[in-house]
Nucleic acid binder design. Structure first.
Length: 356
DNA sequence: TAGCAGGAAAATG
DNA sequence: CATTTTCCTGCTA
């Protein structure tokens, strides 16, 4: 079983990232966290139940590195000390903001985290829940399936979001060179990696997919393996949407169809005002960096100017984008009557002239 | 210091 | 060609 040690490339562990980002259904944003160790997506998705697979390897040490999933979406019972094998690509756009937050707190060393999160097995589940031994297997099976499908759903959602934001298709095989560069920028942004776009210049998605992990590492010692792992997740996800083997039913609860690459207007290059709208209508994902002050009047505030401009730069493949330039582009809309400053002018606050 | 306003010119699709 | 990017000067909170 391959284990990608993605965490070592990353910032201090974003253990609570997804949870904090999602909050809980009732609006309570005080989530708690289930810790998941690290595996590749293919290991997880292609093996039916990696949870079982891992259990079968009891003599092997669990992989290092942790990810988190929102507690409110996990069956309550499985929370009792569950430690699930999974992949590390649940980190959404949100989590990169939250990485910043968690930098302040001392990172949890992987080994310590492991101690805190005992490996799931019949003992921990059965005894922990005080269940008759006969039911252990069923409960375990049930929980694992639910968690598995929940995790898959999260990953597909994240990829979906990235596709909309980047205006690319979810299948790396269909990417042109520009798409590859966008994806690289995006991944670099997510994981705070050094920019390696140049090393992968002139490569199409097909080229990328034909490369081995070693090829990736040769092009970038620093983060080649991480990029390879990330690409592997996208490939696997695309494969699941259009099953490689007919009749293979791996999706369970996460069977939404992929959105069009650009939901708003396919073909046409996206305008900045459309992009801002897209972000504003995804408060779940981007509320940290841009939000409505008054949706009815179309008044919005850019909460994190650097992040919004970075996202815009990624979308337009303009790595040098910054808020100075982005705001200049916004000001071009004044004349055109698309965006203006609200009556009471405030820093970083703008208003759509024609609110939806 | 960061944001704002707008001129000017280059780049882009 | 329209739009955006880039660079700029000067102003303001």
């Amino acid at each position: 079983m391959t284990v990608y040690q993605l965490r070592q490339h990353q910032q201090p562990t974003p253990l609570t990232s997804t949870v904090e980002a999602m909050g809980s259904p009732g609006g309570d944003r005080m989530g708690s966290t289930v810790h998941l160790p690290l595996m590749s997506f293919s290991d997880y998705s292609h093996s039916g139940s990696a949870l079982r697979a891992w259990e079968e390897e009891e003599d092997t040490k669990p992989p290092r590195g942790l990810i988190s999933v929102p507690k409110h979406t996990v069956p309550e019972r499985s929370l009792q000390g569950v430690f699930l094998p999974c992949f590390d690509m649940l980190l959404t756009e949100n989590s990169s903001w939250l990485l910043k937050k968690s930098e302040a707190a001392p990172p949890v060393p992987p080994c310590k985290a492991l101690e805190q999160c005992p490996v799931i097995n019949s003992q921990s589940l059965g005894l922990g829940l005080g269940l008759p031994s006969g039911l252990e297997g069923q409960v375990e099976e049930c929980c694992l399936e639910q968690v598995q499908s929940m995790v898959l759903g999260e990953v597909l959602k994240d990829i979906e979001t990235a596709c909309i934001l980047l205006n690319i298709t979810p299948d790396p095989m269909e990417w042109n060179c520009g798409n590859v560069q966008k994806w690289l920028l995006w991944t670099e942004h997510l994981y705070r990696l050094p920019q390696v776009g140049k090393v992968f210049q002139e490569l199409s998605g097909k080229d990328l997919c034909s490369m081995t992990e070693e090829d990736f590492r040769q092009r970038s010692m620093q983060c080649g393996d991480l990029l390879y792992a990330h690409l592997d997740i996208w490939r696997s996800a695309a494969c699941m949407k259009e099953p490689c083997t007919p009749g293979d039913n791996r999706l369970h609860g996460a069977e939404e169809s992929w959105p069009k690459a650009d939901s708003s207007c396919s073909g046409q290059p996206i305008h900045l005002w459309q992009f801002l709208r897209e972000l504003l209508f995804k408060p779940h994902n981007y509320g940290h960096c841009i939000r409505w002050l008054n949706k009815e009047k179309g008044i919005f505030k850019i909460e994190d100017s650097a992040s919004v401009s970075r996202l815009w730069g990624i979308r337009k493949n303009r790595p040098a984008m910054n808020y100075d330039k982005l705001s200049r582009s916004i000001r071009q809309y004044y004349k055109k009557g698309i965006i203006r400053k609200p009556d009471v002018s405030q820093r970083l606050v703008y208003q759509f002239v024609h609110p939806v």
